Measured scan of single mutants.
Amino acid sequence: MDALKSAGRALIRSPSLAKQSWGGGGRHRKLPENWTDTRETLLEGMLFSLKYLGMTLVEQPKGEELSAAAIKRIVATAKASGKKLQKVTLKVSPRGIILTDNLTNQLIENVSIYRISYCTADKMHDKVFAYIAQSQHNQSLECHAFLCTKRKMAQAVTLTVAQAFKVAFEFWQVSKEEKEKRDKASQEGGDVLGARQDCTPPLKSLVATGNLLDLEETAKAPLSTVSANTTNMDEVPRPQALSGSSVVWELDDGLDEAFSRLAQSRTNPQVLDTGLTAQDMHYAQCLSPVDWDKPDSSGTEQDDLFSF
């Protein structure tokens, strides 16, 4: 819950932080000083300027060897085509990944977070970031790969997607708890209302004896509580940590079903599988986004697919 609360507080303090972009060759504004600060901008989305290598189908939802083989196929196909790589912007948030063309600003792909089953910074092609997700059109699994400016960037994108998945799962947990509370309150309110109706004398007997209905007592009954809980029953509950912020979080049926399955089948359902080692994760978390744009010590960066 700490990640969720800190993310909400950060967004309320400075929503404009989320509009910064990394990996864009110096076009961005001043960047936060450390990885923790940038992680807090996830709610509205972190932007990464990358190059799209392509996509291939895979048979399993996750796995280092599986993704490595898929990336190898994608890279080989991209090299064989001889075409310049498409420059894209990857927007990562707890909602998922939005992929747009840098030149036309046209939407290429919009992947809900619950469809993503794996992401990684490839070991062999260490400047490549990739994720595996279920197609929104059918049940097939797709591996999408992107060329980053350097290994640090690939690791940073991988960690960002993993963190977005974690925050999304926490949102789901909060929403589920809130819905259970509202359902319980609604049920209790309905029981109270039913009890009051059972003990209320029939209207005919009131008229016969000349008694008047006590409207004041009726007004004191917990009807307002019942209506408050039943009027918006169809509205999706939102985490309290975000009250007053500009973010509107809505959970669709697909996300609810997917996270429910994860909660039942996995020990740590909030953790998205990645190909990063503990050492890689520690190294990337210690980086400032400013470091992502620094040239690798191995030599001059080449803006070309064939540089790796």
Rank of each mutant, 00 (worst) to 15 (best):
K204Q: 05
A241H: 14
D198P: 00
F259Q: 07
K176Q: 07
G254P: 06
R73S: 09
D191K: 02
V271T: 12
A263R: 12
A145Y: 11
E33K: 12
K91P: 14
M281S: 01
G190R: 05
T209P: 06
L215H: 05
T274I: 15
T218G: 06
G210S: 11
A156Q: 01
I71W: 04
F306W: 01
Y283D: 04
T104C: 02
N232M: 05
A168E: 02
S93Q: 09
A80Q: 02
A263D: 02
K166V: 06
A221I: 06
V167C: 07
K84R: 14
E64S: 07
G210F: 03
E217P: 02
G96P: 08
F259S: 02
F306I: 05
K72M: 10
V75I: 04
W35V: 14
I113V: 13
T158E: 01
Q136I: 11
K72T: 04
E142I: 12
A258T: 00
M153C: 07
L212P: 12
G299R: 05
K19N: 13
S175W: 02
Q163D: 05
G96M: 02
V236F: 07
E44I: 12
L4M: 01
P239W: 03
L17D: 15
D304W: 12
M124P: 00
T100V: 13
L42C: 10
R182K: 08
E44V: 10
L31H: 04
G275L: 01
N232V: 10
T230R: 08
C143T: 01
L272H: 06
I97P: 09
Q155R: 15
E59C: 09
K51V: 08
N268E: 00
Q139T: 07
T160R: 07
I74T: 14
L31T: 15
E44Y: 08
E44G: 11
R29A: 08
L17M: 14
F169I: 01
R27Q: 09
F171V: 03
S224C: 08
G23E: 12
L103V: 12
G210Q: 04
L215K: 09
I113D: 09
L213H: 15
N34A: 13
V226T: 12
G244Q: 04
V92S: 11
I98H: 07
D183P: 05
G54S: 13
A278I: 07
D291E: 02
L212H: 07
K30L: 14
L251W: 04
Q134F: 05
T120E: 03
R266Q: 05
A258C: 00
Y114R: 00
G63D: 14
Q240K: 11
L90S: 15
D191P: 03
L147S: 11
K152I: 06
S135Y: 11
K91Q: 14
A68S: 10
K150E: 11
H144Y: 13
R238L: 14
L251Y: 12
S140Y: 15
L276A: 07
F169T: 01
F165A: 01
Q173N: 07
T200G: 08
S186E: 08
S265H: 00
S112D: 03
S6Y: 15
D273K: 06
Y131P: 04
D234S: 09
K204G: 06
T36R: 10
L47S: 13
L11M: 11
S227N: 01
A76R: 10
I113K: 01
V236H: 01
S117H: 09
G275E: 01
G190C: 03
L17N: 15
R73L: 12
G24W: 14
P15Y: 04
R13P: 14
E170W: 10
Q60M: 14
I113T: 07
P201T: 09
E65F: 11
T209N: 05
W249M: 03
N232C: 06
T225P: 13
S243M: 07
T160N: 09
W292E: 12
I98V: 10
K176D: 02
W172C: 01
T230A: 05
A80S: 08
D183L: 04
V167H: 03
G54A: 08
Q187E: 06
V157C: 01
D252V: 12
G299Y: 07
S175L: 00
W35D: 11
A185N: 05
S260R: 00
E59T: 10
W172R: 01
G45T: 13
N34V: 13
S49F: 15
N268Y: 00
K176H: 03
A121Q: 10
Y131E: 09
L4T: 03
D191Y: 15
P289D: 08
Q136E: 14
V174N: 04
L159S: 10
L212V: 09
I12P: 04
A185H: 03
I97C: 13
Q155Y: 10
V247D: 14
G45I: 11
L159G: 13
T38G: 11
L57W: 00
Q187H: 06
K179P: 05
E301Y: 11
L272N: 06
A195P: 10
P201N: 08
G194M: 03
F259T: 01
L11W: 04
S14K: 15
Q270F: 08
L212R: 14
L203E: 06
L42M: 08
E177P: 09
A145T: 15
W249Q: 07
A195T: 15
V174D: 11
G54R: 05
A164Y: 05
L99P: 14
R95K: 08
D234H: 03
A69Y: 14
